[in-house]
């Protein structure tokens, strides 16, 4: 029996709920502290309250581009057909950073501060982001 306040051991990949929710229903989850409401990604201890208070909750899937880079060179053979591609660090509306690829936008049209949201309905195995034109 785990003492009160001490989180039981997480078996396997601590990030598994995130990937499973995306794969099953394209739901975009974050790890949230039930005490202070701080969101995290990837799975983390709350810096104030530890792991015991953390649960996976659905997030907005929106944010702004904090910074980005454009790959003009493929570092593995599997990426050769992808260049040039844009990797962005999105500052999610809930607070955490999320590293992803920006799609449906030319690399030279990307800028810091632009609003983006997760793309749904395209069968993406990884949550990719697109410009949030509705905003």
């Amino acid at each position: 029996m785990t003492p009160p306040g001490i989180a039981p051991l997480v078996k396997g990949d601590p990030d598994a709920p995130f990937w499973e929710a995306w794969a099953a229903e394209e739901r975009f989850l974050l790890h949230r502290c039930a005490i202070c409401g701080r969101h995290d990604w990837p799975a983390s201890c709350c810096v104030e309250h530890g792991l015991a208070a953390m649960t996976w909750v659905e997030a907005s899937g929106g944010g702004v581009v904090d910074t980005y880079t454009v790959f003009h060179r493929a570092y593995t053979a599997g990426l050769a057909s992808a260049v040039p591609y844009t990797v962005a660090v999105v500052r999610l509306d809930e607070g955490p950073y999320f590293h992803t690829r920006l799609v449906e936008v030319a690399p030279d049209a990307v800028c810091t501060g632009m609003r983006v949201r997760v793309r749904r309905g395209a069968g993406d195995a990884f949550p990719l982001f697109i410009p949030d034109r509705a905003f």
């Binding site: 910074t67 980005y68 990426l79 590293h99 690829r101 810091t112 990884f126």
Partner: peptide, 16 residues
């Protein structure tokens, strides 16, 4: 998503 190599990690600082 293809974020590989040290250059990209530093490029994020540079772009910022």
């Amino acid at each position: 998503v293809g974020m590989i190599g040290a250059a990209s990690a530093h490029a994020l600082h540079a772009r910022w």
